[in-house]
Amino acid sequence: MKREYVVLFLILANMFWAGNYIIGQYVVAEMSPLQMTFSRWLIALLFLYPIATWIERPSWKKVWRQWKVLLVMSLLGVMGYNLLLYKALQFTTPLNAALVNAINPAVIVLFAAVFLKEKISSINGLGLIISLLGVILVLTNGQLQQIFSVHYNFGDLLMLLAILVWTIYSILGRKIRDIPPISATAVSVSLGLLTLFPFVLFSDLNFHLSKEATLGILYIGIFPSVGSFIFWNISIRQIGASRAGIYLNLITVFTAIFSLLLGKPISSVQILGGVLVFVGVYLSNKVVKQAQETLDDGTRCISKNI
């Protein structure tokens, strides 16, 4: 495949994921985070099984034998992360959510070093500190002296919790490296929907959605959940997860562009915080071989949650 197509696929994948942040904030005004998460993956599931069968031709019995691990993965990455993301968007801006989320690859490296005893170099440590400083700038709106204040934006704090959930999910992802990714996602989504169904059944559901909200949830269920995932997996097979992972920074870039097009201002603090996060993540990703493999594992499955 020509490199131009790979780059195009990566750009489209990250643009669709950025749309999840922007459109998600509008849809969550009419649907609860629980209803959004359930609806999103129910729509995606209609596509995942046929696509997995067509592209990967898996042994479904072999995939389902891993149901225990896939259930945990589902509760963390497929369902847990999205519930926290959509809840966060009720309190913070899409750009802030994307900026905080951008630190995720660096956090994965840190957790790999702490819990998997993988080496982390001095430049990695510097990168983690710089990216953390960028997130703190965003969290405190540039008022670093308020770092110990209890008046943080609740949505930003929820995004930090979402990052923690996703990091644990990424580390656990190493246990299912022998399962095709689309097939694993299809089964994880199935288990997650079964888990969420009783809660959705007894929750306050809004069936009288506006046209905009209906189109929004269809977009989220098709483009970020299915389209991005297919483009992403095609790309990493061509250039590898490490090189493709650099393009994940485009999520924040596209989120900023979409915010500007919608007339939402971007502050100098957000710009400075974003630059620090990008620089820090770049440095933290200059890792030794073992740690890079862990980051790759997390990057391969990142499309399950964005």
Rank of each mutant, 00 (worst) to 15 (best):
N153M: 06
R65K: 12
I103M: 11
A113N: 06
S74P: 07
F115L: 10
L172V: 03
V287H: 02
I236M: 10
Y219W: 05
L83N: 01
F115P: 01
S188Y: 11
Q90P: 04
N305W: 10
F199V: 02
Y282K: 09
V135Y: 04
P105D: 13
Q25E: 13
G263W: 10
L194H: 14
V288D: 15
P180M: 13
I234S: 05
L250H: 08
L196I: 03
N20V: 07
S74T: 06
G192H: 08
I11Y: 11
I168Q: 13
L260C: 03
Y219I: 01
A241S: 12
R57W: 07
V288F: 15
A18C: 05
F91P: 00
L8A: 11
M31E: 05
S188M: 14
G134F: 04
V288P: 14
Q238D: 11
L157Y: 04
V114N: 05
V269F: 06
R174S: 14
L132A: 12
A213N: 01
T214V: 15
I23W: 05
V138F: 08
A244L: 09
C301L: 15
L85P: 03
D296L: 13
Q143L: 15
L193H: 09
M36R: 03
L160D: 04
V187C: 08
V7P: 02
S190M: 08
I217G: 00
M159E: 02
S225W: 06
Q66C: 10
I246T: 14
N285I: 07
S188W: 07
L75S: 07
I179T: 07
A102H: 01
V288M: 14
G298N: 00
D204R: 14
L172D: 02
L272N: 00
R243M: 10
V114P: 03
V288Y: 15
F9G: 05
L205Y: 08
R65D: 10
G173Q: 05
E56W: 07
I230N: 06
F254M: 06
D204Y: 14
V200K: 02
I55T: 02
R174T: 15
N82F: 08
L194S: 11
G127D: 04
N141D: 11
E56I: 10
L70P: 08
I103T: 09
I220L: 06
Q90D: 10
N141L: 10
E118T: 01
N206C: 12
I108K: 00
P224Y: 04
V226F: 07
W166T: 00
V135R: 00
Q290C: 09
I129Q: 05
L295D: 04
Y247T: 11
K286G: 12
A88L: 09
F47Y: 02
I120Y: 08
V28P: 04
A162K: 04
A184R: 00
R65T: 08
S242Y: 14
L194Q: 11
L144P: 06
I217S: 00
P105H: 08
W54T: 02
S149W: 06
V150R: 13
G263I: 01
I51E: 01
M79V: 14
V7A: 02
L193P: 02
S284H: 03
K2Q: 13
I179Y: 00
Q145T: 15
S121H: 14
G77W: 04
E30H: 10
K117G: 12
F258Q: 05
L95C: 12
L139M: 03
V109A: 08
G155S: 02
A88V: 02
H151D: 10
L283A: 04
